[in-house]
């Protein structure tokens, strides 16, 4: 996993609440057995006017010009600003894979759905929860200011606005460490292999039917 320490990047505003994982990456693209290549189909039904199928040349497809990610001013955005309950719905990790593949490294919203939130950390994406009033203010600033950028400083746990205002955010210490160092969860867990084995043996003795 790629490290996440500081990110200074262009912000794209997606002004909708409850954006679900079916919208982030529609199911026909879930048939892939790879982890990459989902970026061109991120928000497929909102970005294109035709029906998306795997294997199409997206450059040839008609776009919905008014959709935010199709607007020239947001090309190259690395930070997605959105509304509450982003990522609700399925557990498909294809959703964070598509966001990452498209170029997003950080997401800002009032809240995120649980499983999606968790999946982001496994892929080096930082989902930041900010209070509603601050999210509102950011939406105003982004839409009013072409080229609007934010600085995200994970070490100091804060977002820095261009006007200098600091927006502190909360993150679990463990998740923060993993992101800062780009650690692989599995490797970390396997340091406890002896504990797991001992736990398992005891469980097998007490509830043998679980191991049938």
């Amino acid at each position: 996993m790629e490290k996440f320490v500081r990110l200074e990047g262009l912000v794209a505003p997606l002004d909708r609440a409850n954006v679900d994982t079916d919208a982030i990456i529609p199911k026909q693209f879930l048939k892939s057995i790879k982890r990459s290549g989902f970026g061109p189909n991120l928000f497929d039904e909102w970005r294109y006017r035709d029906v998306g199928e795997p294997g199409q040349d997206v450059a040839q497809r008609p776009r919905k010009d008014d959709f935010v990610l199709n607007q020239p001013r947001y090309q190259g955005a690395q930070i997605l600003l959105t509304r509450k309950n982003f990522g609700c719905g399925s557990s498909r990790e294809h959703a964070p894979w598509a966001l990452l593949d498209f170029g997003f490294r950080a997401l800002i919203a009032e809240s995120f759905a649980d499983i999606f939130f968790n999946n982001c950390f496994k892929n080096g994406i930082l989902p930041i929860v900010l209070p509603a009033a601050e999210v509102d203010a950011l939406f105003v600033q982004v839409t009013e200011t072409p080229g609007y950028r934010l600085l995200i400083d994970l070490e100091r746990q804060r977002v820095v606005r261009p006007d200098g205002k600091l927006l502190p955010f909360v993150i679990d210490a463990f998740r923060r460490e993993c992101l800062l160092n780009g650690w692989d969860d599995i490797g970390l867990t396997l340091r406890h292999a002896d504990l797991i084995r001992a736990f398992e043996e005891q469980r097998r003795r007490q509830q043998p039917w679980l191991f049938a």
Binding site: R35, S90, S91, E93, N118, K122, E200
Partner: peptide, 17 residues
């Protein structure tokens, strides 16, 4: 439910964080 990274994590460690 879990994501695919966690599927791999469970396969490898029989545990989840």
């Amino acid at each position: 439910g879990i994501g695919t990274s966690e599927v791999e994590h469970v396969l490898a460690t029989q545990c989840l964080l």
